[in-house]
Design a protein around this nucleic acid. Structure first.
Lengths: 344, 344
DNA sequence: ATATCGAATGCAAACGTTTGAAAAAATTTT
DNA sequence: AAAATTTTTTCAAACGTTTGCATTCGATAT
């Protein structure tokens, strides 16, 4: 078919019987170009819809103005908030964000990173996939480091790597959540944990565990059950909790989704929230304020994380020699709502 | 600093005192290359972490294997499902998806499209922003058409453009939602409408309106109030509905978020769902099955839309001359849950 | 020894753009 | 009118890779 090759600077040069350099300069308002020439060329270019081939420029300047954002999922509120934060800072600086979703899949993550490097991406924001965590392979990351492509870890990270990173203080958030439940009188706090191995899951679990320790409450293994962050994954675990001989009187969910799933099961059993069972989630997703009952939760400043991560990246590329990596940990905050208001 | 320029084919050629062509062929397993040469070069390349510069290849072949996905937002379940669908089909074919979020902003949309064209993106999936709709400007789209870059509309579209498009049957979905409410006995169905002007909003509104017509129910303007798809935006409108002299006994929300917001207000007033007021949402978002009460809704096959859109794109680029654009409309389906189970 | 052949490698152009330096053209000064 | 100066344009190289064609080098057949 009429494939209609995009018009190039050479095409325009031919049309005006001049050299490509002249056209290039004319289009870029170079002062050495005659006023008339400039006008004519610019007008013609607009007419025929000329558009600079950025690919050739990227090759020439070794700059692509493209950044990779590699995340396990974009299904949750938090991730989209992070992306929005990155976008807020970086888009105005002319960067294009290349968003890659790994679905928690190691091979896909590896492929994406390789592709980003091949495409000469100028920086990569990475929240590693669960499979990567599990497998412990990380050569694909060493590749990035070797290329000196700035790599910023978001949330999840390998402790072994020396890079900048931005995370939310999951540990203290979780601690605060559980402490809140305990101080208002709940005695048996269960935890619907995230997938094992992920920093996010483990940090929140640690917060849960250490808080119980602080209040001299023995940890009951049967009160800790895994979920996968999805609302559905909370159903069976919650039922199991309720079916225990000595069921919990409070549940700390690894995130809001899981907490909402748990609430549903509890209400279905005819139990009262927060009367019989108190619930706390994590994320402060928009919906959490409007569930019935509304959900006590821990804020998780995704947008801010994105903006901080951007800052870390910019620091790194603007560094002059004496650069050291930075670790930003943003605080998370307890937001008390109905699901944990024990009527005392 | 040590900027560590990535190693190129020329570097390798120098090292082996051979020409770049030989290196290129060796790396690509060209049969004319001596077995030893090939092995040595490949091994060395692996050692030094050589990685093909895809930018130069893009320039040479005029192929970027990159597709643009321009959407107003990625905050909702639906959009992420669409992206997942696109991804499912196109990632295995080697395409990189460049996801651009316009925040419903015309200028940003324009800028993104221009950038995608400049970067020689091979196709664009577009769900136009609200501002674009409102303003009626669409030169930025003509630009894409002129370049013959395949343009696939998702959900929202300009009727004036001749392109392929994939949409969900919002009209009949909305119709079914309202019909469901009416047939089980609700008499005064309100509608929390989406922003004016958007296809999605208007189609659902039309479904609402036409269904009332079918059952000879007069349309009461005061029962139709705008929201912006966000859960918060349903609060004030719902209160206004409940404060009417003759309040509705059912509400059809433009999406699940809005419906959930409405439910919350209604429950806060001490009214029963579905006893006093029936609720139907739209999207069948994961959370809708686990709200309390669970939400009757209309399914919206985002993943499928993404896959269909991919198919349309592939059809277009593989077409041999006699290509005509296609419009796919996927059905949406009523999913009955507790929020509309009137106890009769 | 020479022609013939096959294998292995090199040359050069191409993709589209920018840019320093050189060249050409136009203008001003002497 | 020639020289000097300024303005405008062109040349050529560069970015990294691929690829058709030519070349080189041995080896084999005559």
């Amino acid at each position: 078919m009429n494939s209609s090759r995009p018009v190039t600077i050479k095409d325009i040069a031919r049309r005006f019987r001049c050299s490509p350099s002249t056209v290039s300069r004319a289009l870029n308002d170079h002062p050495a170009i005659n006023e008339d020439t400039r006008k004519n060329i610019q007008e013609y270019a607009r007419e025929v819809g000329y558009q600079r081939n950025e690919v050739s420029l990227s090759l020439l300047n070794k700059k692509t103005a493209t950044l990779g954002v590699v995340v396990p999922t974009i299904g949750n509120y938090y991730e989209t908030a992070v992306i929005e934060g990155l976008h807020t800072v970086l888009q105005p600086l002319g960067y294009t964000l290349n968003i890659c979703v790994t679905n928690e899949n190691y091979l896909l993550e590896k492929e994406y990173l390789s592709k980003l490097l091949s495409n000469r991406t100028e920086g990569i924001f990475l929240s590693v996939s669960q499979e990567t965590y599990d497998s412990g392979y990380y050569e694909h990351l060493e590749n990035v480091i070797q290329r000196k492509t700035p790599l910023i870890f978001i949330d999840r990270e390998y402790e072994d790597f020396e890079t900048s990173r931005a995370t939310v203080d999951d540990y203290h958030g979780a601690f605060a959540a559980v402490e809140h439940l305990i101080t208002i009188g709940y005695k048996n706090v269960a935890h619907l944990k995230g997938p094992n191995g992920l920093t996010v899951s483990e940090q929140r679990f640690k917060g849960y565990r250490d808080c119980l320790k602080k209040y001299d409450i023995a940890i009951r293994e049967e009160l800790i059950i895994n979920t996968n962050f999805q609302v559905e994954s909370a159903i069976v675990p919650t039922k199991r909790l309720l079916d225990l001989d000595s069921p919990p009187d409070a549940i700390f969910g690894v995130n809001d989704q899981v907490a909402i799933g748990a609430m549903r099961v509890i209400l279905d059993r005819g139990l009262k929230i927060p009367g019989d069972i108190g619930i706390v989630g994590f994320d402060n997703s928009p919906i959490s304020a409007y569930t019935y009952p509304s959900l006590t939760t821990i804020s998780r400043p995704g947008r801010k994380i994105g903006m901080e991560a951007s800052r870390l990246f910019l620091n790194q590329i603007n560094a002059s020699g004496d650069f050291t990596h930075e670790s930003i940990v943003l605080p998370s905050e307890l937001i008390i709502r109905e699901s944990s208001l024990r009527i005392s």
